[in-house]
Nucleic acid binder design. Sequence first.
DNA 1: TATTTTCCGTTGCAAAAGCAACACATTATG
DNA 2: CATAATGTGTTGCTTTTGCAACGGAAAATA
Lengths: 210, 210
Amino acid sequence: MNTNFDIENFILDFSNSCQKKQKKVFSKNEVVTTYIKNRNQLCILLDGNADLVRYDLNGNRTIVEHFSKNALFGEVFYTITTNNELLVEAKSNCTVLFYSYDDIFHKCRNNCKFHQTLSENLPQLILNKVTDLNMRIELLTKRSTRDKLLGYFSLLSTRKLSTSFELPFSLTDLADYLSVDRSAMMRELKLLKEDGFIEKIGNRITLLYK
Amino acid sequence: MNTNFDIENFILDFSNSCQKKQKKVFSKNEVVTTYIKNRNQLCILLDGNADLVRYDLNGNRTIVEHFSKNALFGEVFYTITTNNELLVEAKSNCTVLFYSYDDIFHKCRNNCKFHQTLSENLPQLILNKVTDLNMRIELLTKRSTRDKLLGYFSLLSTRKLSTSFELPFSLTDLADYLSVDRSAMMRELKLLKEDGFIEKIGNRITLLYK
DNA sequence: TATTTTCCGTTGCAAAAGCAACACATTATG
DNA sequence: CATAATGTGTTGCTTTTGCAACGGAAAATA
């Protein structure tokens, strides 16, 4: 299976070859896009970091997804319902490509190489997204704040192939990502340190268990 | 966009035309498959109901996904990690098609019509799965048991286009699906009835609000 | 550099959720 | 049909989590 389709080089090579896309630059805290009505938008984050955020009726903020370089996002992945306000917020300066899923899927008339390669690799790209979402679901189904934290840390540790890693979030944002109260999470973090599970220096976590 | 690709008729027409699949029948409570090692398995549930279930180290059971007719599932959607035991359990008698994702993606030598149609429609099928998973994430990020219940009910109500609907789960399973304690959920269900949000007769829920 | 804004770390108290146990109903099974 | 297994409904108690508030640190901004 072509799990290692190299989206990075692919995008570098072809990002200027197709007419049917828009490339835009955003600065920190700008709204990249909103998921309000169905327009089959599919986006690729070329550079920077961004979060997909939802504000619910109780005023809670949830970071639904965190995007870094080469992430795929857009309202095409969502069934839009009215009681949702989904925003993609730039967490740093960002460069984003905007496509219409229809255009990608049906290819543009020019039959440009970008489209050809993209549509060939689209199943794999979307499949990668599915595995990401499944990891997120695994985190969210953990029953306690402690397990969510440990689960998330273990995931980052696996990705970095190291027991020591930087958090990609502020602690405030981490709480919104794990869907827990910030102060309760801070309390639990303290307990994890006291119980010798982790060490935390600034934004860097080191796992001490196992 | 081809959102309405009719997987049902498609499968009926072509399910016997390709050599590279296995069709198996399961009876209630049998294990359909386990997600243990990577073998790029992709399955289609032709008939019946099944749950993807995880048992964690604390003995908690989580229903990760609930599958009904024509659902796509399989370990190809997961990044397998060792601290996971994922099982697909038949909740009723089931008929399941088993594929290798590689075979689907690269097409079989026969170039059978099934494969051709399937691989053409694969992005759409996987995309549907992404939107399902996103709905699940939305549910799981709700902060309280009450909001999870109301969110799930509203989802079922939208699907059935009616304020009244049958639960596809036993209450025990519903708790495992919403990732909450069963007795706490029962308590909340009672409160929802008392507060006039819902009516519950047997397995049928009616929404009374709005 | 001064000042504003955001983030971190903490705490007491209140509310929610989990745990354990039980009786009873319903559904499978020999 | 008898019996076992599973699901429902409930409750008292404990633990966890959320809420609100605050002071100080760090970072952004004027």
